[in-house]
Nucleic acid binder design. Structure first.
Lengths: 110, 110
DNA sequence: GAATTGTATCGCAATATTACGATGATTGAT
DNA sequence: ATCAATCATCGTAATATTGCGATACAATTC
């Protein structure tokens, strides 16, 4: 049905899955990298840098904004989209903690 | 159209997005954590530990196997699913490198 | 105020994902 | 050989995602 029973999973699992979902598209990775590598964070520039229509890019920006990785401030006639370093670091930590959970491989069968 | 133009993105972006997609569901996170915390890696146990039908769990296992995070070896009448530590560490590194790209926030507007 | 520019939203179509029950296939036990 | 147990796959339905053009909205400019 496409619906995940969110009530059966832990908050940690839901949070990690949500952040992973936000990163689960190359265009969104590209957007984040573009914002990192340039300090010009205006939407128009992003559209020019991606092989996607303006409306599609706007949707991806919206999803990144939804999870907090981006914050957009209105700057006159355009919008300044920037990475939120706080959320970025927090996300980094969430992934880091998750990956650190594996000490070593399964040792009783493989 | 639901189709991403993969040819327009870098291999790094595609790889990261693919791994993120594999982690973009709480059930798959739960599966991985379950495999970490117990060393009993038989599919049946996983099904019992999740609020999902056996066929659904099998699909999630298949996706984790597709990206290499899991390897499944037939063990008599059941299947031993284990985390592949090599792929795990590699994925961890991919995310780590990605997150490390942000030195500090955008400094010219926010 | 009208035109321009930049971005968001709407509506639609195509595809992907998630989930389940039913069915297969394979192995071990009777 | 039959049966039970275990996991994979198929078929199907519901929902989500992706993408684009068209349009709406907001602010600046003329």
């Amino acid at each position: 049905m496409g619906l995940s029973k969110t009530e059966h999973f832990t908050g940690e699992q839901l949070e990690l899955a949500e952040m992973a979902k936000a990163l689960a598209h190359p265009a969104r990775i590209a957007i984040l990298q573009y914002l990192i590598w340039t300090n010009a964070c205006v939407c128009g520039d992003i559209v020019d840098a991606l092989p996607l229509a303006q409306s599609t890019v706007s949707q991806h920006l919206k999803e990144l904004k939804k999870v907090g990785l981006l914050k957009g401030e209105i700057d006159g006639t355009s919008v300044c989209y920037c990475i939120d370093p706080i959320v970025w670091k927090k996300t980094e930590a969430v992934f880091s903690v998750f990956f650190a959970q594996l000490k070593n491989g399964c040792d009783d069968c493989c």
